[in-house]
Write a protein that binds this DNA or RNA. Structure first.
Length: 563
RNA sequence: UGGGGAGUCGCCAAGUGGUAAGGCAGCAGACUUUGGAUCUGCGAAUCGGGGGUUCGAAUCCCUCCUCCCCAGCCA
């Protein structure tokens, strides 16, 4: 279907590595990936890249993918997020069959392994305070120094660790640390913390535990338990890999391969969880599912399809260099997908009244319209036509600019699926605003063809004033007005929000076939864009979200003329 | 200044010693009852710079530069 997508999914450095593993038989030809979200927020398009990558890799090699929640920090994680993540992943088309796991499923095993490390003299209970641990860690250029508690006996460590588990210490009083190397140039290896004390209720294990494993201590072993072959993660974990490997090696258990790739960045938006949470909590957007958000739930509400997101992820590929993808590519992908499947309808966003002076009063006729020229199976529908219509304000210009070939005084255009009409008169109010157009129609051009063969330069959309349904339309633009929010020194990304990222039009009109629409339904309003019915829709009020506009040649010309 | 990564068209990204894919964006044109879609054409004097090896290098070696990540009892 798309050469670039095929090409991208055919070749990338991860596949090269897997091919090599298959060649040497490292995993016996097996490929098993996993997506390991922390349930502390909603999924965004960057996560979709990771999910789809894990899915496509597994699929390409006849393997499987697990879903495992990395729920090792009860103070940040909530059930609401696990539910949301599962929902979004299913929507994206992910299938983990019965392999839904939680790192918390492995807390007992992890505890037992910690005891094993202590017995091997590879871990110790440290009573240094948080501040002290930081001081002892050294800096990027200076080695750290050993904790005074580093050489406690195995017996003492065993006893202390059990006391930690039993809640005999306060939060922050002590931690369990791996005994590796306080002088390692890799700070992750300077006796990393394995367990910390948290008297917090966990969303799954409740109050069973008061000690919780750190990410590094939980992640690799969780992969190992699940028999993961290729543990894909983002670049910032590259220097955690030696630790990932160290734990597995010390424990002597099955050893997956961690592979890091660059996370997705998109311009004109933000992707960090911290920033997204801030947008939600401070009310800069209407919630996680605000159609302007790069979250999966937001994009779904906006009208994106899983197919469009999949196409996008195939197109951008995967590599190790930090990059920022132009959001235009995402928009291209939705258009590409929606063009083939979205039924066409007519909707007028900014109505301008048109009266056909030679059309009989009170007459109505049904005109035939094609539902989707890209899809013959979509069939046809009828749309009512009458003496009074609404057209788009943009489709009329009293003093037409060069290259503008829509309606103007004395000029003739075609009404889509209707007749040719000619503007005879312009009616203005006291302030000089154009409030109505008086036009004539040519009865011989019904359906849009002139028997005498004359041509018109433009075809415009319309609705019959007496039949049209009122609608609210929400137009969205980039959430941020700058390409890379938060990149500038000393400028808060909040200040770079696009003040016009949402424009609400309350007096739009749509053709009557749209009278009863259901949230989630998608349409193309001809010549305008793709729209998705918002959940705010009620039987009395239709609300449409603009997913993305159509490419607009005239807008481009205007821009050139303006400059 | 320690360690780990990355630098190929405006933006992604192939290429792994044989003489620079593709996509997005842009520009030009064809077609068109959506100025949509589709189709065609155009576009890389430095493959970060400089040396070197080689008949031949984006691909190998040396060196320099730039950018990203790491000093949470976050993930």
């Amino acid at each position: 279907m798309n050469g670039a997508a095929d090409e991208a999914s055919r070749s990338n450095f991860i596949r090269d590595i897997i091919d090599e593993h298959n060649r040497t038989g490292r995993f016996g030809g097996r490929v098993h990936t996993r997506f390991p979200p922390e349930p502390n927020g909603y999924l965004h398009i960057g996560h979709a890249k990771a999910i789809l990558l894990n899915m496509s890799i597994a699929e390409a090699y006849g393997g499987k993918m697990n879903l495992r929640f990395d729920d090792t920090n009860p103070v940040k994680e909530e059930q609401e997020y696990v539910d949301g993540i599962i929902h979004d992943m299913r929507w994206l088309g992910a299938d983990w069959e019965d392999r839904l796991f939680f790192a918390s499923d492995y807390f007992d095993q992890l505890y037992a392994w910690a005891v094993q490390l202590i017995k091997d003299g590879k871990a110790y209970v440290d009573h240094l305070s948080g501040d002290e641990i930081r001081e002892y860690r050294g800096t990027l250029t200076e080695p750290g120094k050993d904790s005074p508690y580093r050489n406690r006996s195995v017996e003492e460590n065993l006893k202390l660790f059990e006391q930690m588990r039993n809640g005999e210490f306060k939060e922050g009083e002590c931690v369990l640390r791996a005994k590796i190397d306080m002088a390692s140039p890799n700070l992750n290896l300077r006796d990393p913390v394995m367990y910390r004390i948290r008297f917090a209720t966990h969303h799954r294990t409740g109050d069973k535990w008061c000690i919780y494993p750190m990410y590094d201590w939980a992640h690799g072993q969780s992969d190992s338990i699940e028999g993961i072959t290729h543990s894909l993660c983002s670049l910032e974990y590259e220097d955690h890999r030696p630790l990932y490997d160290w734990y597995l090696d010390q424990l002597g258990i099955y050893h997956p391969q961690q592979i890091e790739f660059a996370r997705l960045n998109l311009n004109h938006t933000v992707m960090s969880k911290r920033k997204l949470i801030k947008l939600v909590q401070e009310g800069h957007v209407r919630g996680w599912d605000d159609p302007r958000m790069p979250t999966i739930t937001g994009m779904r509400r906006r009208g994106y399809t899983p197919e469009a997101i999949r196409l996008f992820c195939d197109m951008i590929g995967v590599a190790k260099s930090n990059s920022t993808v132009d959001i235009a590519m995402l928009e291209y992908c939705v258009r590409q997908d929606l063009n083939k499947r979205a039924p066409r309808r007519m909707g007028v966003l900014r109505p301008l009244k048109v009266v056909l002076t030679n059309y009989p009063e009170g007459q109505t006729e049904q005109l035939n319209a094609i539902n989707n020229p890209e899809d013959p199976d979509a069939g046809t529908r009828t749309v009512p036509f009458s003496r009074t219509l609404y057209i788009e304000q943009d489709d009329f210009m009293e003093n037409p600019a060069p290259k503008y070939y829509r309606l103007a005084p004395g000029r003739e255009v075609r009404l889509r699926y209707g007749y040719f009409i000619k503007c005879e008169d312009v009616v203005k109010d006291a302030q000089g605003n154009i409030v109505e157009l008086r036009c004539t129609y040519d009865p011989a051009t019904r359906g849009g063809e002139a028997p005498d063969g004359r041509k018109v330069k433009a075809t415009i959309h319309w609705v019959s004033a007496g039949h049209a349904k009122a609608a609210e339309v929400r137009l969205y633009d980039h959430l941020f007005s700058v390409p890379n929010p938060g990149e500038d020194e000393g400028v808060d990304f909040i200040e770079q929000l696009n003040p016009n990222s949402m424009q609400i039009i309350t007096n739009a009109f749509v053709e009557p076939s749209l009278a009863e629409v259901k949230p989630g339904e998608r349409f193309q309003f001809e010549r305008v864009g793709y729209f998705c019915v918002d959940p705010d829709t009620t039987p009395e009020k239709r609300v449409f979200n603009r997913t993305v506009g159509l490419k607009d040649e005239w807008a481009k010309i205007q821009k050139q003329q303006g400059a």
